[in-house]
């Protein structure tokens, strides 16, 4: 049964085509997909359009139904999108901001249900001690964790994360991916995340989509999608892929290529 698929997707910003001819084979539930590619290649636009903040052409289907044809309310229930920007440094506390996020999207949930979800989210992410701290007094990394909490409290079926670990230290990066992967396993959701760190992507993602020059140049298992030739094409760097002693593939960047 189809879970998530993309056919002949393209995205334009005014007259400029950003991405075209993007196809994702059927992705089963519970899987984590990493989006890689140079700055400005369209990773964020891709996520924003699937989330409903922009309009795409082509077909993006979750369980056989076209996302863009859903009404906004239903789509927001299905899809959780975490923007690349950090939550604003306001005087709202973490608890209040996650609470209002949940209330704004799901007015149907009872107060008790919202409270239970918040308890769960703050525990799973390990940020209980931030709950009653205002966002204005948090570090960037802490705010990013609150941003993630705002999205996963919705318990979406399709989770779209735009560089969710960009402000996090190594330990928290690992923590975030463990939480997300656990969530995918338990709830059978699907997650698509844009990343800059190739090694983080190869370590955690089930599939990787690599973009270059407005096209999807490779899609598949990390070790299939990422190779020296692809990395050169996507980023203009010469790299070698090796396997760590723990058995994970990783890329070493040797230098910048001239072309």
């Amino acid at each position: 049964m189809t879970k998530f698929s993309i056919k002949n997707y393209s995205f334009s910003y005014g007259p400029t085509t950003i991405l075209s001819e993007v196809n994702f084979d059927e992705i089963p539930r519970g899987k984590l997909v990493g989006l890689l590619g140079a700055n400005g290649v369209g990773k964020s636009s891709f996520l924003r359009s699937i989330a409903g903040l922009e309009t795409y052409t082509g077909s993006v289907k979750l369980d056989g139904s076209e996302l863009q044809e859903q009404n906004m309310y239903k789509r927001m229930k299905l899809v959780g999108y975490m923007p690349q920007t950090l939550p604003q440094a306001t005087s709202l506390t973490a608890y209040e901001s996650v609470f209002s996020a949940c209330r704004a999207v799901r007015p149907d949930l009872s107060h008790q249900e919202v409270e239970a979800r918040l308890e769960d989210v703050f525990n799973t992410l390990g940020i209980r001690e931030l709950a009653f701290k205002s966002l204005a007094r948090m570090s960037g990394g802490q705010r990013q964790m609150v941003g993630l909490a705002q999205v996963i409290v919705k318990r979406p079926e399709l989770l779209l994360l735009d560089e969710p670990t960009s402000a996090l230290d190594l330990r928290w990066q690992m923590g975030v991916f463990n939480v997300v992967k656990n969530m995918l396993t338990n709830s059978e959701a699907i997650c698509i995340t844009a990343l800059h760190d190739i090694n983080l992507a190869m370590r955690h993602c089930d599939y990787i989509a690599l973009f270059a020059d407005g096209k999807l140049i490779s899609f598949g298992l990390p070790t299939d999608a990422i190779n020296e030739v692809n990395l050169n094409e996507a980023y203009g760097v010469s790299a070698s892929i090796e396997i760590s002693r723990a058995g994970y593939p990783f890329a070493i960047i040797n230098g910048v290529t001239n072309e």
Binding site: P83, T85, P87, L92, E96, S97, S100, A104, G147, Q150
Partner: peptide
């Protein structure tokens, strides 16, 4: 209140 977390 939700808007206070930022427009995005």
């Amino acid at each position: 209140t939700a808007l206070r977390a930022g427009e995005e």
